[in-house]
Amino acid sequence: MLQIDCPWCGPRDQSEFGFGGEAHIVRPADPDALSDAEWADYLFMRKNTRGPHAEQWCHSAGCRRWFNVLRDTLTYRILAVYRVGEPPPEPGHAD
């Protein structure tokens, strides 16, 4: 089980958290202007990165707040935890 360092509550077991998928996907400002392909890209297409992956987690059994995590999907090692709205840290400098 992962140990995740909630920005508000500190380190807790992964079982307290919910996984929210890839981070930094921005809802299009004008959905009506999108083609079907662009809408599909926003809605369904994912990076599914093998390596450092920026993703959303929610401390659902704790403070119930969302935040971002940079995690290596190959080693499951958590490289960085950062707040929503902040840019993802560079993987190499995360420690």
Binding site: G18, N48, H53, E55, T73, L74, T75, Y76
Partner: peptide, 13 residues
């Protein structure tokens, strides 16, 4: 596991 992963191992929970 709810999270994405490529490591061919999952969580004990």
């Amino acid at each position: 596991d709810a999270f994405t992963g490529y490591a061919q191992r999952g969580s004990f929970s």
